[in-house]
Simulated assay, not measured.
Amino acid sequence: MNSLAEVLHVGSAVGSGAILKRLFVIGYLTAIAVAMLGWLSAFGWITVRVAKWLFA
């Protein structure tokens, strides 16, 4: 075994700051996903309405 190797103790990897940061990222990505689904459904609805208007 190498005599130069040391055991380093690292503080808690899961702190309150890390949890809040993860929750913020999850909330942000969820909001973006919901907004994207809203825009896609709106564009789809508009496309169908315009197609019905043009071909009717």
Rank of each mutant, 00 (worst) to 15 (best):
M1P: 09
N2L: 00
N2M: 00
N2C: 01
S3K: 08
S3Q: 04
S3P: 11
L4V: 03
A5K: 09
E6F: 06
E6G: 08
E6Y: 10
V7N: 00
L8E: 04
L8Y: 10
L8Q: 12
H9I: 14
H9Q: 13
V10G: 05
V10Q: 05
V10I: 12
S12T: 13
A13V: 15
V14H: 06
G15I: 03
G15Y: 02
G15L: 03
S16G: 09
G17P: 01
A18H: 06
A18K: 09
I19T: 06
I19F: 05
I19Q: 04
L20R: 15
L20M: 13
L20Y: 11
L20K: 15
R22V: 06
R22C: 08
L23Y: 00
L23F: 01
L23R: 01
L23W: 02
F24Y: 15
F24C: 14
I26W: 02
I26A: 13
G27T: 09
Y28L: 15
Y28G: 02
Y28S: 01
L29F: 03
L29N: 05
L29W: 01
T30M: 08
T30D: 04
T30A: 12
I32R: 09
I32P: 05
A33K: 00
A33D: 03
A33F: 03
A33C: 03
A33Q: 01
V34D: 04
V34W: 02
V34S: 11
A35V: 12
A35Y: 14
L37A: 06
L37P: 00
G38M: 02
G38C: 03
L40A: 04
A42Q: 02
A42T: 10
G44F: 10
G44E: 06
G44Y: 06
W45C: 08
W45L: 11
W45M: 09
W45E: 08
I46S: 00
I46T: 02
T47Y: 10
T47K: 11
V48Q: 01
V50I: 15
V50Y: 11
V50P: 07
V50S: 10
A51L: 12
A51I: 10
K52N: 06
K52H: 03
L54H: 00
L54N: 02
F55A: 06
A56F: 02
A56C: 04
